[in-house]
């Protein structure tokens, strides 16, 4: 009896002609994503002058540079928490609506228009003579025009305008994925709305909310155009992406630029891993109501 051919043995492990279709896409990702990443990592370890870690040492010894990490987190974390805190109750209401499409279509607008357009609109809308200040003065909440652009709050507003719909739509897709029969069962057994939320929905939602938090955080953490246009890019909203961009394309030091990009990715991954790690402390299991 002959041993099976190499072809048969490979096919039994999942390698055949169809598997090879993965190669073109894989090659593009290796060439445009993996290779540049290692190139950047190596580049960041070959500074213009000084020892191999000079870029990183410079970054962490210059307050103008290392404070960008705090400035970015100081924007991204509160914005993500606010967006998620509003997204959950609103998603719980909207889940009961039968015609959600108009609402979701309006909310998808700022995501598709992008941060540059939103920043341009907010410059007029939040400006000293803009509609927001005028309405606030009219209803008596502000005494005079309040400066809301070219500072922290301008960037905050732009991140809420683009980030809230994102967090909301993701949360909505998780919330509608929970079988309504579970809630009906809890209500039949006499659970109040608060109990149903705290003891039934929340535990089921926590894994999805952790993922939503991460994706919303990644967006807020990467803030760049609105921090330049709506913030004070030399002051309170000098976020880490501005530092990386300036190093690479204004001082033409691609080595330092790559180093800051690596630091940026590392800080972001640490937070994402912390959030996803804490997910395992909660219930993980099916959210459907049927048996088996």
């Amino acid at each position: 009896m002959r041993a099976p051919s190499l072809r048969t043995r490979l096919a039994s492990r999942g390698f055949d002609g169809t598997t090879l279709l993965v190669l073109p896409g894989l090659a593009v990702m290796l060439g445009l994503f993996i290779y540049p990443f290692f190139y950047g990592l190596a580049d960041s370890l070959m500074p213009k002058e000084g020892v191999w870690y000079a870029n990183y040492a410079n970054f962490f010894s210059d307050p103008f540079q290392y404070r960008t990490i705090a400035a970015t987190l100081w924007l991204a974390i509160p914005v993500t928490i606010v967006n998620l805190a509003f997204a959950v109750p609103i998603a719980f209401r909207v889940r009961l609506m039968t015609r959600q499409r108009l609402l979701t279509t309006i909310l998808v607008l700022p995501i598709t228009l992008g941060t540059v357009f939103v920043a341009d609109g907010l410059l007029t809308f939040l400006g000293p003579q803009g509609w927001f200040n005028r309405v606030m003065i009219l209803v008596g909440l502000f005494d005079g025009p309040v400066k809301l652009t070219n500072n922290y709050w301008g960037v905050f507003a732009s991140l809420v305008i683009t980030g809230f719909p994102f967090a909301f739509l993701l949360t909505l897709s998780y919330v509608t994925g929970i079988d309504p029969a579970i809630e009906q069962a809890a209500a039949t057994l006499g659970a109040s709305p608060r109990q149903r939320f705290m003891r039934v929905f929340l535990p089921l939602l926590v894994p999805g909310l952790a993922v939503t938090f991460c994706l919303a955080f990644v967006q807020a953490f990467a803030v760049f155009p609105s921090a330049v246009l709506l913030g004070s890019p030399a002051g309170s909203t000098r976020v880490i992406s501005i530092a990386a961009y300036q190093a690479a394309f204004e001082q033409y030091d691609h080595s330092l630029g790559s180093a800051i990009a690596m630091i940026m990715g590392a800080v972001e991954l640490v937070i994402v891993l912390l959030v996803l790690g804490s997910r395992s402390l909660f219930y993980r299991g099916p959210t459907g109501g049927t048996k088996g």
């Binding site: 993965v22 990702m29 580049d43 994706l215 990644v218 990386a244 961009y245």
Partner: peptide, 26 residues
């Protein structure tokens, strides 16, 4: 296969400037 799928997930989880700056340099 898991590694390949992870490779396609990563660009959606990393800020664009983080991979954009090294790629632009290349």
């Amino acid at each position: 296969k898991r590694i390949v799928v992870l490779l396609f997930l990563l660009p959606l989880l990393i800020p664009p400037l983080t991979y954009g700056i090294p790629l632009a340099t290349v």
